[in-house]
């Protein structure tokens, strides 16, 4: 079991109380790695300390036609 799959196994068992076989854990680890990496990269390029989720609703209201 590689490091990422092993980490996924630990999260499943100890943090989420879920059981998966090693093959599925490896698939999930790959998927999560891609998603996490993309969001981290996007966040690093755009987000500042003052960004908050509610800015979306404010912007929609401000830009409303």
């Amino acid at each position: 079991m590689d490091e990422k799959t092993s980490l996924a196994a630990g999260i499943a068992r100890h943090l989420q109380g879920l059981g998966y076989d090693e093959k599925r854990l490896a698939e999930i680890a790959t998927e999560v790695d891609i998603l996490n990496g993309a969001v981290r990269k996007a966040a690093a390029a755009r987000l500042t300390f003052d960004d908050e989720p509610a800015a979306f609703a404010s912007l929609m209201a401000r830009e409303a036609k």
Binding site: A12, I28, A29, R46, L47, A55, F56, L59, E63
Partner: peptide, 27 residues
């Protein structure tokens, strides 16, 4: 859905924080 159990909360929150930036870029 299963990957959702393994994505850290910080990444989920960042995805929500990014949303306004994506709207701004689109507009």
């Amino acid at each position: 859905m299963e990957a959702g159990f393994f994505i850290p909360a910080t990444q989920y929150i960042d995805a929500l924080r990014l949303r306004a930036h994506f709207v701004r870029e689109f507009l």
